[in-house]
Structures are given as structure tokens and as C-alpha cells.
Simulated assay, not measured.
Amino acid sequence: MRFNHLDLNLLVALDVLLEEQNITRAAERLHMTQSATSGVLGRLRTYFEDELLVQVGRKMQPTPYALELMAPVREVLLTIQSSITAKPVFDPATSKRHFRLMTSDYLISVLFAQVIERIHQEAPHITFEMIGPSDNSGELLMRGEVDLMIVPDRYTLEGHPSQLLFEEEHVCVVWNGNTQVGDHLTLEKYMEMGHVSVGFGRTRHMSIEEWFITQYGFNRRLEVITNDFNTLPQLVVGTQRIATMHQRLARLYAAHLPLRILPPPVKIPVMREVMLWHRSVDGDPMHRWLRDRITAFVHSVEQMQAA
């Protein structure tokens, strides 16, 4: 198929070439030989009247024009995928759809383990891939490489739909043999204790550190930094340390580990967890069905807790 003398099949190749910026890797993904892939790049250069990718040392780098093309090319391909090739009629019971969800281990523990179990009862052939958050999470969603992100609302992306799932409080967790803390926790005691915290990505972004610095002008005394939320309660057992973590996850672990849950010494802002998805799949029936199932589960849990 051609549009304005451009073979639209070449857009797929252009998208891969701009992402990989490497002929060999692009050829592997396109299931083509390197020479054929080089030929495709030559045709694209002729059409766009731009080098698109230039050799700099041992690497290829996109030209300024190629960088401008990256987003619209991916947008066109996602629109074709969701609007033209997607089936208008769907049947969850027979669907073999594969969903890639980006979310934290905390949300897998308190939400998605149960959601996936329920979905399996209605749609036994649907499969899931759970991807942890990273420094380029938003970019992966915008490129259509993840189907759904569940993140705090500060990570929403302009121009893409989102929906509030629930609000979460923070609590403090200590070992039930901790001798430094009674039933109440003062800010002074909290700040002098050793803390266990979570750091994400190459920048080791800390979960609530920025808020503490802004609010009080100092850091907590971090003695252990882990890379997931589920290890927080495990790392305080048998120690005099303290962890500040999500209330739902703390309650889950307190039922199985020798832990005490305490209110924090200061009011930590409520965290709002949202679902976020690419606008191109907003009307996708199967995607909408998945979002509805997740929302329905959250509402059912909240109703049980309120009863």
C-alpha cells in the first residue's frame, strides 16, 4: 500500500530502525538480511530526503529530522493496529490476548495477584507479562510497548487517558521485638532511627525522600536500600530499624510476620494510584474489558472493607 508514493510497509521498518539505531539488530527484528535492511534504509533516505541515521564512530545516531519522525511514525502504526486490525467483536472466553502491564511489586501483591486469578475464570487463555517501573516507563507506554501502567498520579502523561483506581495511606512498620519504639512514634525518634527504603532505576529514585526534604529539610537515616516494596517488611524483622510503606502491603505482611504497624509521626500525603493507557487503545474492546475488570475488583474490595 502506498500513500503519497511512500510504501506504508516501510514505516514498520523505519520505526524499528529509529528504535534500534543499528542495522544488525533492526534486521533481526524485521526478519531480513542486513543488506536488505540497508536497502530499505536507502529507500527511506531517498523518500524523506534526509540521512535519517548517520554513522558516528561505531554507532548510528538519528538526525534531527529522524528524531521528529519517531513519535508520529509510532503513532500511525499504533492507530493502524488498534483501529484497523483490531477485531470489533471480542469474546473473553476464547481470547488469547497477551497484555503487558507495568506496575510495582506492591501492586502485584495487593491487587494483580487477585485480579489475574479472577480474570482467568472468565478468560482462561489471556496471558500477562508484568513489567517493573523504570526510568523510561512513560516512553514505553507512548511507544505502545506496554498496554497499561498503574502508577501514582504524578506519573500521568498529558494526552493519554487515565483513571483513578484507589487512594493509599502510608504507615510505619517495625519488628514486634523492637525496643526503641512504643505505641506512639515521635518525629524525633523517627528521624534518629535507621530506615529501610526503596530505590528505583539508575537514579535510585527514593519513594518518599523528596517529600521529606521539601517538608522538613532533611533526609531520613537510610541504613538499607532495597529495590522492591515486598522486601521492606522482611528487612526490619529482627532489627531496630523502621520502614515506611503502603498500608495495604503492611497489613498483608503483618498477618504473616512478627510486625507492628504504627501511624507515621507526621501526615504523609495520600498516594493516588491511577491506571494509564495509550490513547490509541482507548476504544479497544478487550482493553476496555480488562480495565473494567480491574476497576470492579478494586470497588468490590473497598465495599467489603466498608461493610
Results as ranks from 00 to 15, higher is better:
Phe3Ser: 12
Asn4Arg: 10
His5Cys: 06
Leu6Lys: 05
Asp7Met: 01
Val12His: 09
Val12Asp: 14
Ala13Asp: 12
Ala13Thr: 03
Leu17Thr: 10
Glu19Ala: 05
Asn22Phe: 03
Ile23Pro: 10
Ala27Gly: 06
Glu28Asp: 07
His31Tyr: 06
Met32Phe: 05
Thr33Met: 01
Ser35Pro: 00
Ala36His: 15
Thr37Phe: 10
Ser38Leu: 08
Arg43Trp: 07
Asp50Lys: 02
Arg58Met: 03
Lys59Pro: 00
Gln61Arg: 15
Tyr65Lys: 14
Tyr65Asp: 03
Met70Tyr: 03
Met70Pro: 01
Val73Glu: 11
Arg74Lys: 15
Arg74Leu: 02
Leu78Ser: 06
Ser83Asp: 11
Ser83Trp: 14
Pro88Asn: 14
Ala93Glu: 15
Met102Leu: 13
Met102Gln: 08
Thr103Gln: 09
Tyr106Cys: 08
Val110His: 06
Ala113Leu: 12
Gln114Phe: 10
Gln114Cys: 04
Ile116Ala: 08
Ile116Arg: 10
Glu117Trp: 01
Ile119Trp: 06
Gly132Glu: 07
Gly132Gln: 11
Asp135Ser: 11
Leu140Gly: 00
Leu140Glu: 13
Met142Arg: 15
Met142His: 10
Arg143Phe: 00
Val146Ile: 02
Asp147Pro: 05
Pro161His: 06
Ser162Met: 12
Ser162Glu: 11
Gln163Met: 07
Leu164Tyr: 12
Phe166Lys: 15
Val173Lys: 09
Val173Glu: 12
Val174Asp: 02
Asn176Trp: 09
Gly177His: 13
Thr179Glu: 13
Asp183Trp: 11
His184Tyr: 07
Leu185Ala: 01
Leu185Tyr: 03
Thr186Tyr: 08
Lys189Phe: 00
Met193Ala: 04
Gly194Phe: 00
Ser197Glu: 11
Ser197Val: 13
Gly199Cys: 09
Gly201Cys: 01
Gly201Lys: 06
Arg204Lys: 15
His205Glu: 14
His205Asn: 06
Ser207Lys: 05
Ser207Leu: 01
Ile208Gln: 11
Ile208Cys: 03
Glu209Ala: 13
Glu210Leu: 09
Trp211Gln: 14
Ile213Arg: 12
Ile213Asp: 06
Thr214Gln: 15
Gln215Phe: 02
Tyr216His: 15
Gly217His: 04
Phe218Trp: 01
Leu222Lys: 08
Leu222Ala: 06
Val224Asp: 12
Thr226Phe: 03
Thr226Lys: 09
Asn227Arg: 12
Asn227Ser: 14
Asp228Arg: 04
Asn230Ser: 12
Leu232Arg: 05
Pro233Ile: 05
Leu235Ser: 07
Val237Lys: 01
Thr239Gly: 13
Thr239Asn: 13
Thr239Val: 08
Met245Tyr: 03
Gln247His: 15
Leu249Trp: 01
Arg251Asn: 09
His256Lys: 09
Leu257Met: 09
Leu262Thr: 07
Pro264Lys: 05
Pro265Asn: 04
Ile268Trp: 05
Val270Asp: 09
Val274Ala: 02
Val274Leu: 03
Met275Pro: 13
Trp277Asp: 08
Arg279Asn: 12
Asp282Glu: 15
Gly283Trp: 08
Leu290Ile: 08
Asp292Pro: 04
Thr295Pro: 01
Ala296Tyr: 02
His299Asp: 13
Gln305Ala: 12
Gln305Glu: 15
Ala306Asp: 12
Ala306His: 14
